[in-house]
Amino acid sequence: MAVNDSEFSEFFASEYARLCWLGCALTGSPAQAEELAQEALVRLWWRWRLVGRPKDPASYVRRVLVNRHRSLLRRAAVEARSLAKTGPEQLALPAGDEQAMVLWQAVQALPVRQRAVLVLRYYEDRTEAEVALLLGLQVGTVKSRAHRALARLRDQLGSPTLDPASRTEEGP
């Protein structure tokens, strides 16, 4: 099967940043995010080359990325738990206002598995059933993790330690 190079290049250009952000939201690490995005795109290209163009390449590559993240988690559960406790070494912050940055940091501070559920629900806009399928979980587990993640976020945002979010527009 031939891969249409210009079509793939355009696909790459339009999807790469989004995949990196998805990876970053899942892992909290820009380096791991690039690794996941590159790996997923390489796998997509070879699938395209050997089997043919997937019907929906964007969904396909996301599925690969999430599965890859999942298998990494499975294989390195101890490390992942440790990462979740200590937090990522270096955060990649999205452009935005301070409030968004605080929320982004709070999301990054969630335990890995809770973060994965939230990211797929809100970044990928997936239903709970789809998230369950992607992560290989029961729907009930997805619901409880989402609930715990949201509760934890509310907790964190309610009592910030460094509180740029509380800035107001008043004069000095």
């Binding site: 982004w104 809100y122 976020l153």
Partner: peptide, 16 residues
């Protein structure tokens, strides 16, 4: 959360 992730969608990735 929806707003945050929507914003991220359009943010360039360094080194793209």
């Amino acid at each position: 959360l929806s707003n945050l992730f929507e914003r991220i969608q359009d943010t360039p990735w360094p080194g793209e």
